[in-house]
C-alpha cells in the first residue's frame, strides 16, 4: 500500500533544481553523521583500552597475530622497496653525478616514509580485512549480542585487544622493516652498483637523525590504530548477511588505506615542515 503510494508520488513529482541540492545535502549530512559515529566509536574504544577488566590472553593472541605473523609480509615489502630505491636513485642521480647520495636517500626514504606507509598498507590488507570479517561475522550471527547477554562488554573483549595490539605492534614491525629496507639498499648498492660496503654504511649513518626514525615509528603507531579501528568499526556495524560482511571487509581496507595516506601527509607536515 504505502510503497505503491510513494511510487505514485514519485511519478507525479517533477524534477526541480532543488532535488540536486537536496541530494547533495543528504550526502553531506550522511558524511558528517558517519564521521561522528566513527569518532564516538574511537573514543569508546580508547576508553575501554585503559579501563579494567583487561583481557590479557586475548591481547597476547592479537599481538602475535598482528605483529609476529605480519613479519614476512612487511619484511618482503621493505626489502624490495629498499632494493628498488637504491637502483632507481642511482640511475637518477648519476645524471648529475650525485651517486654518493644513494645510501642517504635510501635510509631517509625508508625510515621516514616508505616503511611506515607500506607496512601500514600491507597490514591494512592483511589485518584490517580479517578483523572486519571476523567481527562482522560475529555481528551477523548474533555472537556480539551473545557477549552482552553473558555480561561481557564487546568493546573490551573484541575491540580493545585488537586496537592495542595494532598500535603497539606496528612500530615494532616498522623498526624491523627499517633495518630490512636499508639492508635491501645495501645489497643492491654493494653487489650491483659497486659501492664499497664501509662507504655505503658510513653514508647511511652520516645524515640520519633520531627524528627520522622516531617520526616513522609514531606514524606506524597511528597507522596501526587506524587499521585496527577501521577493521573493528566496519565489522561492528556490519549489515546483515554474507554480503554485509563482504562490504564491511572492503570498506575496512579501503577506508584504512586512504586514511593512512591522508594522515601520513599531515604527520609529515607536523614532523618536518620548516626543517
Amino acid at each position: 500500500m504505502s510503497i505503491a503510494d510513494e511510487q505514485k508520488q514519485e511519478v507525479i513529482h517533477h524534477w526541480s533544481p532543488l532535488d540536486g541540492l537536496q541530494k547533495l545535502g543528504h550526502t553531506f549530512l550522511n558524511f558528517f553523521s558517519g564521521a561522528g559515529r566513527l569518532f564516538l566509536f574511537a573514543m569508546q574504544s580508547i576508553y575501554h583500552c585503559f579501563s579494567p577488566p583487561f583481557f590479557g590472553r586475548l591481547l597476547i593472541r592479537q599481538l602475535l597475530d598482528i605483529g609476529y605473523y605480519s613479519l614476512p609480509v612487511v619484511g618482503m615489502t621493505t626489502l624490495f622497496t629498499g632494493m628498488v630505491l637504491a637502483l632507481q636513485s642511482y640511475t637518477g642521480f648519476s645524471r648529475f653525478s650525485a651517486e654518493g647520495a644513494v645510501a642517504t636517500v635510501v635510509v631517509l626514504s625508508v625510515t621516514r616514509e616508505l616503511a611506515p606507509v607500506l607496512a601500514g598498507l600491507m597490514v591494512a590488507g592483511r589485518i584490517g580485512a580479517s578483523i572486519a570479517a571476523e567481527i562482522g561475522t560475529m555481528r551477523v550471527t548474533e555472537q556480539i549480542d551473545a557477549l552482552t547477554t553473558l555480561s561481557t562488554n564487546p568493546f573490551k573483549y573484541l575491540v580493545a585487544p585488537r586496537i592495542l595490539a595494532g598500535t603497539l605492534m606496528l612500530p615494532a614491525l616498522v623498526l624491523i622493516g627499517d633495518v630490512i629496507g636499508v639492508f635491501g639498499g645495501y645489497l643492491v648498492g654493494v653487489y650491483k652498483l659497486g659501492f664499497g660496503p664501509e662507504n655505503y654504511l658510513h653514508k647511511t649513518w652520516e645524515y640520519l637523525t633520531a627524528t627520522d626514525v622516531t617520526s616513522g615509528l609514531w606514524k606506524a603507531a597511528a597507522f596501526g590504530f587506524i587499521v585496527t579501528l577501521m577493521g573493528c568499526y566496519n565489522g561492528y556495524h556490519s549489515q546483515r548477511g554474507a554480503q554485509g560482511v563482504g562490504a564491511a571487509t572492503t570498506n575496512a581496507v579501503v577506508s584504512a588505506s586512504i586514511l593512512i595516506l591522508v594522515v601520513n601527509y599531515f604527520l609529515t607536515q607536523f614532523f618536518f615542515a620548516g626543517k
Binding site: E142, A146, T149, S151
Partner: peptide, 17 residues
C-alpha cells in the same frame, strides 16, 4: 550487569563463539 546475571538467552541461530 547485575540484571544480566538474572538472564539466560538462547539465540535463534545459536550464536556460539
Amino acid at each position: 550487569d547485575e540484571l544480566m546475571r538474572k538472564f539466560g538467552m538462547l539465540f535463534q541461530g545459536g550464536a556460539l563463539f
